[in-house]
Nucleic acid binder design. Sequence first.
DNA 1: GCCATTTGGTTGTTGCGACAACCATTGCAC
DNA 2: GTGCAATGGTTGTCGCAACAACCAAATGGC
Lengths: 167, 167
Amino acid sequence: MTVDTRWLDNQQKAAWVRLAAVIELLPAALDSQLRRDAQLTHFDYFVLAMLSEAPARTLRMTALAEHTTATLARLSHVVQRLETRGLVERFPCPEDKRATNARLTEEGWKKVQEAAPGHVTTVRESVIDALSPEQVEQLAGIADAILHRLDPERARAAVYERYDEPG
Amino acid sequence: MTVDTRWLDNQQKAAWVRLAAVIELLPAALDSQLRRDAQLTHFDYFVLAMLSEAPARTLRMTALAEHTTATLARLSHVVQRLETRGLVERFPCPEDKRATNARLTEEGWKKVQEAAPGHVTTVRESVIDALSPEQVEQLAGIADAILHRLDPERARAAVYERYDEPG
DNA sequence: GCCATTTGGTTGTTGCGACAACCATTGCAC
DNA sequence: GTGCAATGGTTGTCGCAACAACCAAATGGC
């Protein structure tokens, strides 16, 4: 009945428990800083950041969804809210009448620039500056390996290369 | 005005982007497997697992909250649902009338045992087996360092040592 | 012994994410 | 050019998490 489950040894368990705690706490930490300082979710910020780097600060919804590893449905809701707040605008794509383009407004652009420094500082404080340079390199490799399991399609995509802060 | 923000270099950015994707996708992967196979959230499962390891399968709400890195408010809601489903029962603590104890029911115990193998398999498939033994060790160190930034109080607590699967 | 504070916990509201249903456009078969 | 599937996107509903407000019991000062 119970087919041979390969349990975790102590070393593996130690790694997993700590990772589990990180994925529980880190999103909350990022969200709360951005929400407090910029009235933005981390995901909101990510969406704005991706648009800010795109040509003409514009992307098709589908492309934006890929960049942010989100479903179209989720993105649609988020962009709707951002549009209400005047940070983003949507307009139908001329080449494909099914498609919708999302463009960062001037106000949205300002918002990203305001929010970026605080966000980077938080990322530094909670992650990057906690690690040695070797660990940062190791982390890139580890996270990449995990991503190949979680999302084989996109793991090699350019999106993972491009999360720039606007400078 | 804009005080010197230390931006991320390419190596750091690569690590961060990948980590950001992981903390976005991994919780969803864990949740969906457990929800599908056991009608449980990952957090639900964690709560039950912690109780299953406690003496008499019983813990004070406050202690349980610490073990699961959750707020008392969140835990209260979750335990309420689990109680409705008959997996957990609550009763006032004899020694401190303010306090509430949560105890795993027999049904809850069975549920954990049923759910554990599938969960461990998922953890293996998406994380552990994607990494070399050296990377697993590195991951433990990295996650631990991050936890010390996110939650200095609890980073050294025994809880991080104890996420056993029931065997 | 009494009042203030702290501790332990619950509840109500609000907002976001997941999922499924749905509509419109496009591409393809023939 | 008609029929059908695939693509692109939106919307509605439901469940959960965050936050704040709240209540009860316990502790400490004096």
